[in-house]
Simulated assay, not measured.
Amino acid sequence: MKLADLKKKGGVITDAFVKKTVEWTHTVKGKEITEKFDIHVRKHAFGVMEAMFVDGEAQKYRNARYLSASVFLGPDGEEELPFDDAVNLDPSLGIALLQAVNEVNAPVKN
């Protein structure tokens, strides 16, 4: 296979976004509520994923860093999820977002 063929088949990634529906169940005033909404997930290239998960400082808040680099909100994905907000997400929302991001990026398991 030639490089041009790989590119045509999507083997070389350039800022691709994938729309995903997320379901988040949480409790408000003692009542369980399920929110269903769309996000846009950045499909990361191999080198970006590798750089994101190098040892050292990047290990701190690893999942929040991953979400911040991957989750985009709004009808067209124009709004980034800031790192500080990713750190402070409700845990159940963080897990729901992480699941959507993992479905798009299928990271290699350690």
Rank of each mutant, 00 (worst) to 15 (best):
E79Q: 14
L67C: 06
A100S: 14
A100Y: 01
A100V: 04
T14S: 12
G74I: 02
A64S: 15
G94V: 05
L3C: 07
P82T: 03
G56R: 10
A64C: 08
L3G: 08
D85W: 02
Q99Y: 04
I33D: 09
K29D: 02
E103R: 09
E57H: 03
G10L: 12
T14Q: 13
F72V: 07
L67W: 02
S68A: 13
D38F: 01
R62N: 10
G74Q: 07
I39K: 05
K36D: 01
N63V: 12
K60I: 04
S92G: 08
E103Y: 01
R65D: 04
A86I: 07
E23T: 01
K43V: 03
K9H: 05
V18K: 12
K31S: 11
M52V: 04
F53Q: 08
V48C: 03
A100E: 03
A58Q: 12
G11K: 10
T34A: 02
F83T: 14
S68L: 02
H26C: 11
I33V: 15
P107H: 10
V22L: 08
T34E: 01
D15A: 15
T27M: 03
N88T: 07
D15P: 00
V108K: 11
A86L: 06
H40E: 03
I13T: 09
Q59C: 03
D55A: 11
F17C: 04
A96D: 04
P82K: 10
I13E: 08
V71K: 06
V108W: 03
D84R: 12
G56C: 06
V101N: 04
H26F: 02
A64Q: 08
D76N: 15
H40M: 11
G11P: 01
S68F: 00
E80R: 07
K31D: 01
R65Y: 00
K109S: 10
S70A: 15
L81P: 02
M1L: 08
P107F: 06
A58E: 14
P91G: 09
G56A: 12
K2F: 04
P91M: 11
D15T: 08
G77N: 07
K19R: 15
P82M: 05
P82N: 13
A64K: 07
V108Q: 11
F37C: 03
L73E: 04
L67H: 02
L81K: 13
M1S: 11
M52A: 11
A16K: 15
A96F: 00
K109W: 05
L89N: 13
G30C: 00
Y66K: 14
G30Q: 00
E32W: 00
V87G: 11
P107Q: 12
N105R: 14
A45V: 05
N105K: 10
S92K: 14
R65Q: 06
K7Y: 04
R42N: 12
Q99W: 03
S70T: 12
K43Q: 15
V71G: 04
V108C: 08
P75Y: 04
D90R: 00
H44P: 00
L6I: 09
V87M: 13
F37K: 08
L73M: 15
I33K: 15
L6E: 14
K36W: 00
L67F: 01
